[in-house]
Nucleic acid binder design. Structure first.
Lengths: 227, 227
DNA sequence: CCAAAAGTGTTGGGGCTACACCCATGC
DNA sequence: GCATGGGTGTAGCCCCAACACTTTTGG
């Protein structure tokens, strides 16, 4: 075997919807390089550890969540020579979608981790360390695209949610208002997207709304459409 | 920096359409492990080399094509401990789509490289070395999905092609017959999918067919649909 | 002339957008 | 009662699958 050894890291793009906007969990770097700049959480993959296991471990460290039920998927791998000034590091990016957490960034080991609006970060290419702006761009586009043809938006919701809360997720991620009536019909008619629990809530005001859980579908036929 | 060094490889899934079926380029391994078994072509990323550059280099070695004009995209990264018995190797998989090459597997350095029907290989999970069956499965599904919403099918065609040749690509990749008349209308009406060259050919028999080139679109609105 | 493939026209049905309208709650 | 959001009905439009039909070649 004749290869140059490299560092392999798992970096996380942890997205949530809070206060009607899409937000990403960032940490402020305490050490060089890029000391004081914002960065995506992440760390090196351990010798006997699977890539996804490493990503779940980092996720648990950052959010304090036993992360089995959190949606996590690989996005892409970034390996430009020079992307990390300390040496040759290849980074595998994982996208995590989490519900609005009651405890904001609990057991985090990073001194300062916080939720930041995605629109703000994407608007300033110099805000993030390394090539993390590029990674975030790719991950957010992946999330936006997947809302169209998968039931993934439910990953942003609590166990039980109303249709209008689900619509709020779409509106935050896509940055676009949707017709509440047509959205309601489309979601409830699509086989396996959501299943009613029988309960209702008035937490959104107005007439009581039915509560739903995630369904069993993995793809949406037909898809929802942006713009 | 406190990390365990790992080998990073770029593996290739090179697909083409020949004789009406989707085929993949495989090499027969001359050395252990998995000696004598079929495998995807690939190799280690060099110290100062970008991941995609490594993939293009391997592609050129296997196909003999100056590969600038070949479609190449990253699919996913595989890093299970134990996936390579020789040590910890993380493999970044790249999907390449090539036209039916006049010279079958020219400048290949591997003793025996050949085109194999994808359906055959996918039907037998033990045919390929390492976790390459899994990698191939993922890459083929990616290709099938992308034909729906991108003009990527043209990557399988020569510089000039007829609509029915393009339809043949769809039928081979999706394993499904399409209506020639509706397909023709859909493709030619979709802005930027194909542009007519003005020339015609009778190489497919029957009435002369117009020749087309790839257009400039990157996504198809509306998409073509399977099943 | 006939076979074969290219390409156009047409029609009926399904789904979707846009909006009118009614329902059930809190205050 | 009135504001607020939940949910249903429906009309018109567009798209699209299905298929009849015409065109242009080779043999």
């Amino acid at each position: 075997m004749d290869f140059e050894p490299m560092g392999v890291a798992a970096d996380l793009i942890i997205l949530t919807v809070r206060d009607g906007s899409l937000q990403v969990l960032l940490i402020r770097r305490g050490i060089a390089p890029y000391k004081g700049r914002w960065a995506l959480p992440g760390g090196f993959v351990r010798p006997a550890e699977d890539l996804e296991t490493a990503a779940r471990r980092e996720l648990a460290e950052e959010t304090g969540l036993g992360s089995d039920r959190i949606h996590l998927e690989q996005v892409a791998t970034y390996g430009q020579p020079g992307r990390d000034p300390r040496g040759r590091v290849v980074s595998v990016a994982y996208l995590a979608l989490v519900p609005d957490l009651p405890t904001p960034v609990a057991g985090s080991d990073a001194a300062s981790a916080s939720w930041v609006g995605v629109a703000d970060v994407l608007g300033d290419p110099k805000r993030l360390a390394f090539d993390h702006h590029r990674i975030l761009t790719d991950a957010v586009e992946r999330a936006r695209a997947k809302l169209e043809y998968s039931p993934l938006a439910t990953a942003f919701c609590a166990d039980e949610f109303t249709i209008s809360e689900l619509r709020g997720v779409y509106e935050a991620v896509w940055g676009q208002a949707l017709d509440p009536r047509n959205f309601h019909r489309k979601v409830t008619k699509t086989e396996g997207f959501v299943t009613p629990t029988g309960a209702t809530t008035t937490r959104d005001g107005g007439r009581p709304a039915q509560l739903f859980q995630r369904g069993t579908a993995t793809t949406l036929h037909p898809p929802l459409t942006r713009a």
